[in-house]
């Protein structure tokens, strides 16, 4: 089933639906060979670049990929190292739950350019939502909960987390992540750029 719910009922699938394509082939005699192929594939990285692959944004706002003479519709782009290497080692996968990897973009700005790079970037922006906190207006603690009112690069917002949880974590010396009760994530790219007062408000909850 697709990574969501309310999808197609059984028997009403159409090509391009969010179903791994290899599942549509009748499973059967070739299985062992297929497994061996799969185990061989596990040891190989297919590097995608402007010479062998072309990304295009389709009319629905999702991403299509032509690679090795095949067109993959609605592919997903997944960051392998979302924090440390956001533009490198991007895994391009078929759509669906147990989607297979088509290939890897080792370095997006180096290996792609123009509309292709744009389309991939747009897809990444859609998939990864991580507002960066620019300013902390107010922090209020009440009955085991901490309420933040902040300005992010995507606008002002309010969120809350439990005061006794590990909601605020340091992922490097200066970079801090906050996860709220709804599982939204916020980033503070450089905690040293906040004012002393703001840092102090945050410091209490920092693990």
């Amino acid at each position: 089933m697709a990574p969501g719910m309310g999808g197609s009922p059984p028997g009403r699938r159409r090509p391009g639906d969010f179903v791994p394509q290899r599942n549509e082939e009748p499973a059967g005699e070739l299985d062992l060979e297929k497994l061996e192929q799969q185990s061989r594939d596990m040891m190989e990285l297919h590097m995608l670049n402007r010479d062998n692959a072309e990304f295009r944004e389709n009319s629905g706002g999702f991403l299509d990929l032509s690679y090795n003479g095949r067109v993959y519709e609605d592919v997903q782009v997944v960051r392998m190292f979302p924090f440390s290497r956001p533009d490198e080692y991007l895994s391009v996968r078929e759509s669906g739950d147990q989607a297979a990897e088509i290939g890897v973009i080792e370095n997006l700005p180096r290996d792609f350019d123009g509309p292709g790079e744009e389309a991939v970037r747009h897809q990444l922006a859609l998939r990864y939502f991580l507002p960066a906190i620019r300013k902390i207006y107010n922090v209020r603690q009440e009955m085991g909960c901490v309420y933040f009112d902040v300005e992010t690069d995507y606008g002002r917002c309010q969120f809350a987390f439990r005061s006794n949880s590990n909601a605020v974590t340091r992922i490097s010396e200066s970079r801090v992540m906050i996860q709220d009760l709804d599982n939204n994530c916020f980033e503070i790219p450089d905690i040293r750029k906040l004012t002393a007062g703001e840092q102090k408000k945050l410091d209490v909850y920092l693990t």
Partner: peptide
């Protein structure tokens, strides 16, 4: 479909004989 992405989600819709498209985005 409601699709879960990283720290956000989107409502996707496909009209008959059309393609999947994004209707709206929302936070968690």
């Amino acid at each position: 479909q409601c699709r879960t992405l990283v720290n956000n989600g989107l409502l996707a819709l496909r009209q008959e004989s059309g393609r999947w498209e994004t209707l709206v985005r929302f936070s968690m």
